[in-house]
Design a protein around this nucleic acid. Structure first.
Lengths: 153, 153
DNA sequence: ACGTAAAAGATACACCATATCGTTTCAGCT
DNA sequence: AGCTGAAACGATATGGTGTATCTTTTACGT
Protein backbone atom coordinates (compact mmCIF):
# COMPACT_ATOMS: atom_id res chain seq x y z
CA UNK A 1 0.00 0.00 0.00
CA UNK A 2 1.15 3.47 -0.74
CA UNK A 3 1.88 6.20 1.77
CA UNK A 4 -1.54 7.38 2.85
CA UNK A 5 -0.54 10.70 4.41
CA UNK A 6 1.57 11.61 1.42
CA UNK A 7 -1.18 10.65 -1.00
CA UNK A 8 -3.75 12.78 0.78
CA UNK A 9 -1.48 15.81 0.80
CA UNK A 10 -0.80 15.32 -2.89
CA UNK A 11 -4.53 15.13 -3.51
CA UNK A 12 -5.07 18.32 -1.52
CA UNK A 13 -2.40 20.07 -3.54
CA UNK A 14 -3.80 18.84 -6.85
CA UNK A 15 -7.26 20.06 -5.96
CA UNK A 16 -5.84 23.42 -4.92
CA UNK A 17 -4.03 23.65 -8.24
CA UNK A 18 -7.29 22.99 -10.05
CA UNK A 19 -9.14 25.56 -8.00
CA UNK A 20 -11.51 23.02 -6.51
CA UNK A 21 -12.08 21.91 -2.98
CA UNK A 22 -10.82 18.72 -1.38
CA UNK A 23 -14.00 18.12 0.58
CA UNK A 24 -14.86 15.58 3.25
CA UNK A 25 -16.72 13.45 0.68
CA UNK A 26 -13.81 13.49 -1.73
CA UNK A 27 -11.35 12.64 0.98
CA UNK A 28 -13.62 9.80 2.12
CA UNK A 29 -13.72 8.22 -1.34
CA UNK A 30 -10.00 8.53 -1.91
CA UNK A 31 -9.24 7.23 1.57
CA UNK A 32 -11.42 4.18 1.09
CA UNK A 33 -9.76 3.41 -2.23
CA UNK A 34 -6.25 3.78 -0.87
CA UNK A 35 -6.85 1.81 2.31
CA UNK A 36 -8.70 -0.97 0.50
CA UNK A 37 -5.59 -1.54 -1.59
CA UNK A 38 -7.84 -3.27 -4.13
CA UNK A 39 -10.23 -2.55 -6.95
CA UNK A 40 -13.67 -1.57 -5.70
CA UNK A 41 -16.98 -0.94 -7.39
CA UNK A 42 -18.70 2.40 -6.87
CA UNK A 43 -21.28 0.79 -4.64
CA UNK A 44 -18.64 -0.99 -2.59
CA UNK A 45 -16.97 2.37 -2.08
CA UNK A 46 -20.26 3.87 -0.93
CA UNK A 47 -20.71 1.04 1.58
CA UNK A 48 -17.20 1.43 2.93
CA UNK A 49 -17.74 5.17 3.31
CA UNK A 50 -20.90 4.44 5.28
CA UNK A 51 -18.94 2.08 7.50
CA UNK A 52 -16.42 4.79 8.35
CA UNK A 53 -18.93 7.05 10.02
CA UNK A 54 -22.70 6.94 10.30
CA UNK A 55 -23.47 9.19 7.37
CA UNK A 56 -25.00 7.95 4.15
CA UNK A 57 -22.85 8.26 1.02
CA UNK A 58 -25.14 8.38 -2.02
CA UNK A 59 -24.00 6.32 -4.99
CA UNK A 60 -24.42 9.38 -7.21
CA UNK A 61 -21.90 11.30 -5.19
CA UNK A 62 -19.46 8.42 -5.47
CA UNK A 63 -19.68 8.48 -9.25
CA UNK A 64 -19.22 12.22 -9.41
CA UNK A 65 -16.24 12.10 -7.09
CA UNK A 66 -14.68 9.15 -8.91
CA UNK A 67 -14.84 11.10 -12.16
CA UNK A 68 -13.24 14.10 -10.51
CA UNK A 69 -10.47 12.03 -8.94
CA UNK A 70 -9.86 10.32 -12.25
CA UNK A 71 -9.53 13.66 -14.00
CA UNK A 72 -6.87 14.49 -11.44
CA UNK A 73 -5.03 11.23 -12.16
CA UNK A 74 -5.46 10.16 -8.58
CA UNK A 75 -7.37 7.02 -9.42
CA UNK A 76 -7.98 4.75 -12.39
CA UNK A 77 -11.16 3.23 -13.72
CA UNK A 78 -10.83 -0.40 -14.79
CA UNK A 79 -13.26 -0.93 -17.62
CA UNK A 80 -12.70 -4.66 -17.76
CA UNK A 81 -13.76 -5.06 -14.17
CA UNK A 82 -16.07 -2.07 -13.73
CA UNK A 83 -14.04 -1.15 -10.71
CA UNK A 84 -11.81 1.62 -9.46
CA UNK A 85 -8.32 1.66 -7.96
CA UNK A 86 -6.14 4.36 -6.51
CA UNK A 87 -3.23 5.19 -8.75
CA UNK A 88 -0.11 3.34 -7.67
CA UNK A 89 1.92 6.49 -8.27
CA UNK A 90 0.05 9.14 -6.33
CA UNK A 91 2.76 9.68 -3.79
CA UNK A 92 5.82 9.25 -5.94
CA UNK A 93 7.17 11.60 -8.54
CA UNK A 94 6.75 9.01 -11.29
CA UNK A 95 4.96 10.53 -14.27
CA UNK A 96 3.28 7.86 -16.31
CA UNK A 97 1.58 8.78 -19.52
CA UNK A 98 0.41 5.21 -19.86
CA UNK A 99 -1.35 2.85 -17.48
CA UNK A 100 -1.28 -0.90 -17.71
CA UNK A 101 -3.14 -3.27 -15.44
CA UNK A 102 -3.21 -6.96 -14.76
CA UNK A 103 -6.54 -8.10 -13.34
CA UNK A 104 -6.89 -11.53 -11.77
CA UNK A 105 -9.98 -13.14 -13.23
CA UNK A 106 -10.41 -15.20 -10.10
CA UNK A 107 -9.74 -13.03 -7.06
CA UNK A 108 -9.92 -9.63 -8.82
CA UNK A 109 -6.52 -8.61 -7.51
CA UNK A 110 -5.07 -5.79 -9.59
CA UNK A 111 -1.46 -4.93 -10.35
CA UNK A 112 -0.53 -1.68 -12.03
CA UNK A 113 2.51 -2.51 -14.13
CA UNK A 114 4.95 -0.84 -16.49
CA UNK A 115 5.18 -2.61 -19.79
CA UNK A 116 8.45 -2.36 -21.64
CA UNK A 117 8.34 0.09 -24.50
CA UNK A 118 9.15 -2.85 -26.78
CA UNK A 119 5.95 -4.61 -25.73
CA UNK A 120 3.89 -1.47 -26.20
CA UNK A 121 5.51 -0.87 -29.57
CA UNK A 122 4.70 -4.41 -30.64
CA UNK A 123 1.05 -3.79 -29.84
CA UNK A 124 1.05 -0.50 -31.69
CA UNK A 125 2.62 -2.11 -34.75
CA UNK A 126 -0.03 -4.82 -34.79
CA UNK A 127 -2.72 -2.18 -34.40
CA UNK A 128 -1.35 -0.10 -37.25
CA UNK A 129 -1.30 -3.15 -39.49
CA UNK A 130 -4.98 -3.63 -38.74
CA UNK A 131 -5.83 -0.03 -39.56
CA UNK A 132 -5.79 1.43 -36.08
CA UNK A 133 -3.80 4.65 -35.96
CA UNK A 134 -3.41 4.63 -32.22
CA UNK A 135 -4.21 2.55 -29.21
CA UNK A 136 -5.43 3.62 -25.83
CA UNK A 137 -2.92 4.74 -23.24
CA UNK A 138 -4.67 2.41 -20.82
CA UNK A 139 -4.25 -1.31 -21.32
CA UNK A 140 -6.09 -3.88 -19.23
CA UNK A 141 -5.13 -7.53 -19.30
CA UNK A 142 -6.98 -10.30 -17.54
CA UNK A 143 -5.06 -13.21 -16.12
CA UNK A 144 -4.52 -15.26 -13.01
CA UNK A 145 -2.34 -14.17 -10.14
CA UNK A 146 0.10 -16.46 -8.34
CA UNK A 147 -2.53 -17.42 -5.77
CA UNK A 148 -5.14 -18.36 -8.37
CA UNK A 149 -4.92 -21.10 -10.94
CA UNK A 150 -6.63 -20.67 -14.31
CA UNK A 151 -9.76 -22.78 -14.57
CA UNK A 152 -11.02 -21.73 -17.97
CA UNK A 153 -10.68 -18.54 -19.90
CA UNK B 1 -17.61 -9.68 -44.05
CA UNK B 2 -17.22 -13.39 -44.01
CA UNK B 3 -18.95 -15.92 -46.24
CA UNK B 4 -22.46 -16.09 -44.81
CA UNK B 5 -23.58 -19.37 -46.42
CA UNK B 6 -20.39 -21.09 -45.39
CA UNK B 7 -20.63 -19.77 -41.86
CA UNK B 8 -24.19 -21.01 -41.46
CA UNK B 9 -23.31 -24.47 -42.68
CA UNK B 10 -20.37 -24.59 -40.30
CA UNK B 11 -22.68 -23.55 -37.49
CA UNK B 12 -25.14 -26.28 -38.45
CA UNK B 13 -22.37 -28.84 -38.45
CA UNK B 14 -21.01 -27.69 -35.11
CA UNK B 15 -24.42 -27.93 -33.52
CA UNK B 16 -24.91 -31.39 -34.97
CA UNK B 17 -21.55 -32.42 -33.54
CA UNK B 18 -22.62 -31.20 -30.12
CA UNK B 19 -25.95 -33.00 -30.37
CA UNK B 20 -27.95 -29.80 -30.18
CA UNK B 21 -30.32 -28.18 -32.65
CA UNK B 22 -29.57 -25.25 -34.89
CA UNK B 23 -32.98 -23.67 -34.44
CA UNK B 24 -34.62 -20.72 -36.13
CA UNK B 25 -33.82 -18.50 -33.11
CA UNK B 26 -30.18 -19.52 -33.10
CA UNK B 27 -29.86 -18.99 -36.80
CA UNK B 28 -31.49 -15.57 -36.44
CA UNK B 29 -29.00 -14.41 -33.83
CA UNK B 30 -25.98 -15.68 -35.72
CA UNK B 31 -27.27 -14.21 -38.97
CA UNK B 32 -27.77 -10.80 -37.43
CA UNK B 33 -24.27 -10.84 -35.96
CA UNK B 34 -22.64 -11.89 -39.21
CA UNK B 35 -24.57 -9.47 -41.41
CA UNK B 36 -24.07 -6.56 -39.02
CA UNK B 37 -20.31 -6.99 -39.42
CA UNK B 38 -19.92 -5.09 -36.17
CA UNK B 39 -20.09 -5.52 -32.43
CA UNK B 40 -23.66 -5.47 -31.13
CA UNK B 41 -25.20 -5.48 -27.69
CA UNK B 42 -27.64 -8.24 -26.79
CA UNK B 43 -30.52 -5.80 -26.97
CA UNK B 44 -29.41 -4.47 -30.35
CA UNK B 45 -29.38 -8.06 -31.58
CA UNK B 46 -32.91 -8.57 -30.29
CA UNK B 47 -34.08 -5.45 -32.12
CA UNK B 48 -32.46 -6.51 -35.36
CA UNK B 49 -34.06 -9.93 -35.07
CA UNK B 50 -37.42 -8.24 -34.62
CA UNK B 51 -36.78 -6.18 -37.73
CA UNK B 52 -36.20 -9.32 -39.81
CA UNK B 53 -39.67 -10.69 -39.34
CA UNK B 54 -42.56 -9.63 -37.15
CA UNK B 55 -41.85 -11.96 -34.26
CA UNK B 56 -40.61 -10.73 -30.91
CA UNK B 57 -37.16 -11.94 -29.85
CA UNK B 58 -36.96 -11.82 -26.04
CA UNK B 59 -33.73 -10.48 -24.61
CA UNK B 60 -33.46 -13.58 -22.43
CA UNK B 61 -33.36 -15.81 -25.47
CA UNK B 62 -30.65 -13.68 -27.00
CA UNK B 63 -28.44 -14.11 -23.94
CA UNK B 64 -29.02 -17.85 -23.86
CA UNK B 65 -28.24 -18.19 -27.53
CA UNK B 66 -25.19 -15.94 -27.33
CA UNK B 67 -23.78 -18.15 -24.59
CA UNK B 68 -24.41 -21.25 -26.68
CA UNK B 69 -22.82 -19.74 -29.77
CA UNK B 70 -19.85 -18.63 -27.73
CA UNK B 71 -19.38 -22.13 -26.35
CA UNK B 72 -19.26 -23.29 -29.97
CA UNK B 73 -16.60 -20.69 -30.79
CA UNK B 74 -18.89 -19.11 -33.35
CA UNK B 75 -18.94 -15.72 -31.70
CA UNK B 76 -16.91 -13.72 -29.18
CA UNK B 77 -17.99 -11.62 -26.25
CA UNK B 78 -16.12 -8.32 -25.92
CA UNK B 79 -15.94 -7.53 -22.25
CA UNK B 80 -14.50 -4.08 -22.80
CA UNK B 81 -17.50 -3.05 -24.86
CA UNK B 82 -20.22 -5.33 -23.46
CA UNK B 83 -20.91 -6.37 -27.01
CA UNK B 84 -20.77 -9.45 -29.20
CA UNK B 85 -19.17 -10.16 -32.57
CA UNK B 86 -19.18 -13.13 -34.89
CA UNK B 87 -15.85 -14.91 -34.98
CA UNK B 88 -13.76 -13.77 -37.92
CA UNK B 89 -12.70 -17.37 -38.51
CA UNK B 90 -15.99 -19.26 -38.62
CA UNK B 91 -15.74 -20.14 -42.26
CA UNK B 92 -12.03 -20.74 -42.56
CA UNK B 93 -10.02 -23.63 -41.22
CA UNK B 94 -7.92 -21.34 -39.03
CA UNK B 95 -7.76 -22.68 -35.49
CA UNK B 96 -6.98 -19.91 -33.06
CA UNK B 97 -6.42 -20.71 -29.44
CA UNK B 98 -6.13 -17.01 -28.74
CA UNK B 99 -8.33 -14.07 -29.64
CA UNK B 100 -7.17 -10.49 -29.84
CA UNK B 101 -9.39 -7.54 -30.60
CA UNK B 102 -8.95 -3.90 -31.43
CA UNK B 103 -11.99 -1.84 -30.49
CA UNK B 104 -12.39 1.69 -31.80
CA UNK B 105 -13.30 3.90 -28.86
CA UNK B 106 -15.11 6.27 -31.18
CA UNK B 107 -17.11 4.28 -33.73
CA UNK B 108 -16.96 0.90 -31.97
CA UNK B 109 -15.57 -0.82 -35.04
CA UNK B 110 -13.88 -4.08 -34.10
CA UNK B 111 -10.96 -5.86 -35.73
CA UNK B 112 -10.03 -9.39 -34.73
CA UNK B 113 -6.28 -9.57 -35.13
CA UNK B 114 -3.41 -12.00 -34.72
CA UNK B 115 -0.68 -10.67 -32.50
CA UNK B 116 2.81 -11.90 -33.15
CA UNK B 117 3.95 -14.49 -30.68
CA UNK B 118 6.73 -12.07 -29.73
CA UNK B 119 4.17 -9.48 -28.65
CA UNK B 120 2.19 -12.05 -26.69
CA UNK B 121 5.38 -13.32 -25.08
CA UNK B 122 6.35 -9.80 -24.08
CA UNK B 123 3.02 -9.41 -22.31
CA UNK B 124 3.39 -12.76 -20.59
CA UNK B 125 6.89 -11.87 -19.41
CA UNK B 126 5.65 -8.61 -17.94
CA UNK B 127 2.78 -10.45 -16.28
CA UNK B 128 5.08 -13.05 -14.78
CA UNK B 129 7.32 -10.34 -13.39
CA UNK B 130 4.26 -8.88 -11.66
CA UNK B 131 3.27 -12.22 -10.15
CA UNK B 132 0.71 -13.32 -12.71
CA UNK B 133 1.29 -16.92 -13.78
CA UNK B 134 -0.81 -16.64 -16.89
CA UNK B 135 -2.79 -14.16 -18.88
CA UNK B 136 -6.12 -14.58 -20.59
CA UNK B 137 -6.24 -16.03 -24.08
CA UNK B 138 -8.49 -13.12 -25.01
CA UNK B 139 -6.93 -9.69 -25.22
CA UNK B 140 -8.97 -6.56 -25.89
CA UNK B 141 -7.31 -3.30 -26.78
CA UNK B 142 -9.08 0.00 -27.21
CA UNK B 143 -7.86 2.46 -29.78
CA UNK B 144 -8.94 4.60 -32.69
CA UNK B 145 -9.43 3.26 -36.18
CA UNK B 146 -8.26 5.01 -39.32
CA UNK B 147 -11.57 6.85 -39.70
CA UNK B 148 -11.57 8.17 -36.15
CA UNK B 149 -9.06 10.51 -34.57
CA UNK B 150 -8.28 10.20 -30.89
CA UNK B 151 -9.81 13.00 -28.87
CA UNK B 152 -8.85 11.96 -25.37
CA UNK B 153 -8.24 8.62 -23.79
C1' DA C 1 -24.42 39.09 6.62
C1' DC C 2 -25.09 38.16 1.71
C1' DG C 3 -24.81 36.50 -2.98
C1' DT C 4 -22.85 33.24 -5.99
C1' DA C 5 -20.98 29.10 -7.59
C1' DA C 6 -19.38 24.71 -6.30
C1' DA C 7 -20.65 20.64 -4.16
C1' DA C 8 -23.78 17.37 -2.51
C1' DG C 9 -28.43 15.18 -2.18
C1' DA C 10 -32.48 13.00 -4.22
C1' DT C 11 -35.12 10.81 -7.66
C1' DA C 12 -35.77 8.67 -11.84
C1' DC C 13 -34.29 5.96 -15.39
C1' DA C 14 -31.36 3.46 -19.01
C1' DC C 15 -28.64 -0.46 -20.08
C1' DC C 16 -26.52 -4.97 -19.39
C1' DA C 17 -27.11 -9.30 -17.39
C1' DT C 18 -28.84 -13.31 -14.51
C1' DA C 19 -32.31 -16.22 -11.89
C1' DT C 20 -36.30 -18.73 -11.98
C1' DC C 21 -40.15 -21.00 -13.51
C1' DG C 22 -43.80 -22.12 -16.73
C1' DT C 23 -44.78 -23.43 -21.65
C1' DT C 24 -43.86 -25.07 -26.22
C1' DT C 25 -41.47 -27.77 -29.60
C1' DC C 26 -39.42 -31.63 -31.55
C1' DA C 27 -36.68 -36.07 -32.22
C1' DG C 28 -37.08 -40.69 -31.26
C1' DC C 29 -39.81 -44.43 -29.99
C1' DT C 30 -43.60 -47.49 -29.98
C1' DA D 1 -50.00 -41.47 -36.17
C1' DG D 2 -49.75 -40.67 -31.26
C1' DC D 3 -46.76 -40.56 -26.89
C1' DT D 4 -43.06 -38.92 -24.17
C1' DG D 5 -39.15 -36.61 -22.23
C1' DA D 6 -35.60 -33.44 -22.92
C1' DA D 7 -34.31 -29.42 -25.25
C1' DA D 8 -35.57 -24.97 -26.40
C1' DC D 9 -38.14 -20.97 -25.68
C1' DG D 10 -41.15 -17.41 -23.28
C1' DA D 11 -42.21 -14.44 -19.43
C1' DT D 12 -41.43 -12.09 -15.27
C1' DA D 13 -38.61 -10.43 -11.69
C1' DT D 14 -34.46 -8.68 -10.07
C1' DG D 15 -29.60 -7.11 -9.55
C1' DG D 16 -25.48 -4.34 -10.86
C1' DT D 17 -23.56 -0.39 -13.12
C1' DG D 18 -23.99 4.06 -14.66
C1' DT D 19 -26.25 8.65 -16.32
C1' DA D 20 -29.62 12.62 -16.39
C1' DT D 21 -31.85 16.07 -14.06
C1' DC D 22 -33.25 18.93 -10.59
C1' DT D 23 -33.15 20.69 -5.79
C1' DT D 24 -30.76 21.80 -1.62
C1' DT D 25 -26.72 22.78 1.01
C1' DT D 26 -22.18 24.58 1.75
C1' DA D 27 -18.15 27.39 1.36
C1' DC D 28 -15.98 31.51 0.13
C1' DG D 29 -15.17 36.33 -1.37
C1' DT D 30 -17.12 40.69 -0.94
Amino acid sequence: MLDYEKAISVAEQKCADRGIRFTRRRKQVLTVLIKADAALSAYEIAELCDAEDDSKMPAMSVYRILELLQDGNLIHRLELANKYVSCAHISCSHKHKQSQFLICDSCRHVEEIDLSSEAVDALQVAASAAGFNSISSQLEIKGWCAQCQPSSN
